[in-house]
Structures are given as C-alpha cells and as structure tokens.
Design a protein around this nucleic acid. Structure first.
Length: 339
DNA sequence: AAATGCGACAACCGCATTATC
DNA sequence: CGATAATGCGGTTGTCGCATT
C-alpha cells in the first residue's frame, strides 16, 4: 500500500497553465487567500488542477513581486557562496534573495551557474546515460573534480588567479575546502515561512541561512568534522550513481537522498581552517572586486523569526530550546559551537 | 530545409516534515 | 500517541525554441 494520491490524477489537468487558469487562481487568492488548504482550493474556484500544482504556480509565478531571470552578479555570488556552505537547500538560498523562488534559483544554478563554475558545458540529459560508464570512479573522480571546481570557481568569480589563466590579479588563491560534511549530521531546520522569499535579507552582509549562518556553519563543521571523517571515505555520487554534478565536489553529495542523516557536504579536513580560509580570503579579495562572500560574521536568526541573536554562541541555545529538528534527535551529534 | 543537439524553464513527482484529529 | 492529511522541498522530467550540422 502506497501513500494515497493527493488528488485524483485522472481528473486533474497537467502541463502548462493557461492565462485563464492563472487569472482564476490569482484573482481568488488575492481576494480570499489560500484558505489554508491548497487541496480544496482548485475545487473552490473550478480549476481542474492538483492543489500542489496550484500552490506551485502561485508561489513561483503568480505571487506579487516575483522576479524572473536577470540574476545580478551579487545574487550569483550569494547563491554560490550559500551553495558552497549548505548545498542544494534551494528554499534557504531563495530566502536570501528577495523575489527569487527556489525553483528559479535551482534552474539558474543547474543551467547557468554550475556551468560558469565548471567552465564548460555540462553533458545534456541525453548524454548523461553514457556518463556513468565512462567517468572516473569513486574517490579518484571526486578528487579530480574537486580540484577542477576549486580552480574554476576561482576563475569564474575572480576570487583568485593563477598565472596560467591570464585572469590574475596577483593574489593567493583561496583554499577550496576538502571534502567533508559541512553541517551537522542532520538537515538544517526546514522551517521556512510560506513567503520566505521576501522575508529575509535585512542586511546584505548578515545572511541568515535557515538559522545557520556561514559563520556558524563553518564553526559547526569545525567541531563536527571528526564525526564526518567517514564522509571522506564515501562517495555518495558514486554510490548512488545518480547525482549529476561533475566537478562539484562536496556539492555532488548533497542530494536529499544521499544526505539522509547527513548535512550538506562541503569540505574535508579541518573545516574550521579551510572554510574560513576559503570564505574570508574570498571576502577580502572580493572586497576589491565586488565581493563573493558576505563580508561580516552573520547574525543568527531563528527560523521562526524570533530573536536575532549575535554570533555563534547562542546557536546551541536556539537549537536546544526552540528548534525541533525532528527525528534526528538532539543527542545524535554534538554541536560544539560554543565549547 | 530538415534533422539533431542543446539550453532554458515550467511543472511534476515522491519523500520528509508538520499539523491535525 | 498513533494515524492520516496537508504542506514544503528538492530532484527530475517534459517541452519549447534556438543553434548547429
């Protein structure tokens, strides 16, 4: 017995939305709100659509103040730096970019930014079928790709230079972190306001990442790195054979399936040192170039929008007192941020 | 001009989490 | 407190249009 379908698939229309459907949905929600029940909404307004489809359409396209396309360089930097930090947590990343949706960012990453980082065209879906048979295997592939991405990220954003690529500005390259789990062994809090997209950046340098921050994430990684030594010996991409992220070392391990019980993967040994190196060298370098990494230690805000509390030392307070991560249980790992 | 390849993006699917009964 | 429903999220797929062969 599987899960009951959310709607009657047979009587539900699929595919692109027509202007009429858009108008109906938009008009109704603007007038009445969602009523707190997406499943019932399509029946109310006479749409032959699944409630989930309505929700997606509203959140991604019909909602006011949605921006599409034309990502700025600053937005790209934010996306990249957050991706480095937390992986493919698109909803969290979207929360840092007002007007952007997770779907939009995800698409933008997959079609543009990833390639920008990789510096070459990624194989198409059609070509992907062959990839598994030809690629480097396991750890060797990982380290190979890892090195490539480090260089490519650097060159793509001018984070650093090498004498050989001609794009140099004569600064030392930041360290691309080695492979390891960045975050604690459970996902970031999933708590996001419905309209998280418009909820966040109070200050461009105070990024709040689902309650974690770049700084706290780095600190977390530092203190949990030991617990993730095993991750260094795993290659979920190879193990699953399904993650497509050539060159994105830690990133290729961040699919939700491969992360079951594990945080976003980023870097390896002494995350503490390497991630800070990476983030803040980029920052100091980027300062002259428009910046890649947010330039100050971020503040910490609980996902529920309650107190904004400074720096790392309060993270454990929040996690232990007000944030239930669910099944993982607080005893599963040691935070250690403020130890 | 037709076929094919590819990029971009909208939408769907299924799982995890949360809320409610 | 368990079962069920609803919602949120991320991965994947489908489709369209443009570029290339």
């Amino acid at each position: 017995m599987g899960r009951a379908p959310c709607c009657d698939k047979a009587s539900v229309k699929k595919g692109p939305w027509s202007p009429e459907e858009d108008a109906k949905l938009k008009a109704y929600i603007e007038e009445n709100g969602t009523g707190g029940n997406w499943i019932a909404l399509p029946q109310k307004i006479g749409l032959k659509r699944c409630g989930k489809s309505c929700r997606l359409r509203w959140l991604n396209y019909l909602r006011p103040n949605i921006k599409h396309g034309d990502f700025t360089e600053e937005e790209e930097h934010i996306i990249c730096s957050l991706y480095i930090s937390i992986g493919s947590r698109w909803s969290i990343i979207a929360a840092q970019l007002p007007g952007r949706t997770d779907n939009d960012i995800k698409n933008y990453w997959n079609t543009k930014l990833k390639k920008k980082l990789l510096g070459k065209r990624a194989p198409s879906r059609r070509a992907r079928a062959n990839q598994d048979h030809c690629g480097l295997a396991g750890g060797r592939r990982r380290s190979h790709l890892h090195m490539r991405l480090q260089g490519l990220y650097n060159s793509a954003f001018g984070c650093t230079t090498t004498s050989s690529n001609g794009g140099g500005v004569g600064v030392a390259p930041p360290q691309w972190p080695k492979l390891e789990a960045l975050l604690p062994s459970r996902p970031l809090p999933a708590v996001q306001p419905t309209d998280a997209v418009v909820a966040t950046v109070q200050h461009p340098h105070h990024l709040v990442v689902g309650g974690h921050t770049l700084a706290t994430a780095a600190a977390a990684a530092a203190t949990t790195s030991e617990a993730f030594q095993a991750a260094e010996h795993l290659d979920p991409a190879a193990a699953t054979g399904s993650n497509y992220m050539p060159g994105v070392a830690g990133v290729e391990m961040t699919s939700s399936s491969s992360m079951a019980g594990g945080g976003g993967f980023v870097a390896g040994y002494g995350l503490h040192d390497e991630l800070y190196d990476f983030l803040f060298k980029c920052e100091s370098i980027g300062g002259a170039q428009g910046g890649i990494i947010p330039s100050s230690l971020p503040e910490l805000q609980c996902p529920d929008g309650s107190a904004i509390i400074g720096a790392d030392e309060k993270f454990s307070t929040w996690t232990s007192s007000s944030c239930d991560y669910g099944s993982g249980g607080a005893g599963d790992y040691v935070l250690g941020y403020d130890q």
